[in-house]
């Protein structure tokens, strides 16, 4: 071994996270899957000829079968690392983000604002299901017809309207966060009149809807303020957000 300065390749290999081993992932499954058990949800590792162990996730019409070797590769790319705790956290997050069945969306969905696409410059309404602090969006299955979608959306709006939240004032800025699931904070905009009443009761300026703007970042608390203050708030953050006039809220569409 010499004391030579590492070349670019060696530096890169030091920066790159070590790959997740299938055996380590198998042990993480043994710990995580029983903990995430729920009625109607099947979580198991099965052995299939040719592919080795496969993680099976089945819930109503949704089903995933992922070879552990492929999942280990995906988790490595996501930087899960080789530490047991990190791997358990990454696997837990992966299972929690599984697709939402139609019946679950219909029974427990909540209407929130989400990005319209990856450019993150516009938002629209989606039905999401809260799982472990994350809001998992529902994509209707191919067999969900218009009536199923409309029923799920209507129920999600009712649940969004009923969500309790915490209002915090920072001078001219009102910050609204959903009490139990901060990722659902934008649900309050499903009932803007109710939120406006809360703002007025808290004495937020005169809470004039003609001047009021709301700064929306999906999965984050809402910020409401007069137009100029909202512009200052949203204009000086490097984070993606959308600033909407209060009067424009009814024009937001379902995605």
């Amino acid at each position: 071994m010499t004391g030579a300065v590492p070349g670019p390749t060696r530096l890169l290999s030091r920066l790159r996270a070590a790959p997740v081993a299938v055996d380590d992932l198998r042990r993480a499954c043994d710990e995580v899957l029983p903990r995430l058990a729920a009625p109607g949800l099947r979580l198991a590792v099965v052995t299939e000829r040719g592919t080795g162990p496969v993680l099976v996730v089945e819930e109503a019409e949704r089903g995933l079968r992922v070879p552990l070797a492929d999942l280990a590769e995906d988790l490595s790319d996501a930087g899960a690392g080789t530490g047991h705790d990190g791997l358990v956290a990454a696997l837990t997050a992966w299972v929690l983000s599984r697709p939402v069945p139609d019946a679950v969306a219909s029974a427990a969905g909540v209407a929130v604002l989400q990005w319209t696409d990856r450019r993150r410059v516009a938002v629209g309404w989606r039905v999401v299901v809260p799982r472990g602090g994350v809001a998992v969006p529902w994509t209707p299955s191919p067999r969900a017809d218009r009536r199923v979608v409309e029923r799920a959306r209507a129920g999600a709006v009712v649940r969004a309207t009923a969500l309790e939240g915490v209002l915090r004032l920072e001078g001219p800025v009102a910050l609204w966060s959903a009490a139990r699931h901060p990722a659902l904070s934008t649900a309050a905009l499903a009932a803007p009149a109710r939120l406006l009443d809360r703002l007025r009761a808290a004495g937020v300026g005169r809470a004039d809807p003609g001047d009021l703007h709301v700064v929306v970042t999906p999965d984050s608390p809402l910020a409401c303020a007069g137009a100029a203050v909202a512009a200052r708030l949203a204009g000086e953050t490097g984070e993606a957000c959308v600033r909407l006039p209060w009067t424009g809220l009814p024009r937001l569409r379902w995605l």
Partner: peptide, 18 residues
């Protein structure tokens, strides 16, 4: 300046990561 002192605190609530 007073407004910004409030807005700075609000930014940290909405976007704490940066």
């Amino acid at each position: 300046v007073l407004t910004e002192l409030h807005v700075a605190a609000a930014r940290d609530v909405v976007w704490p990561a940066p």
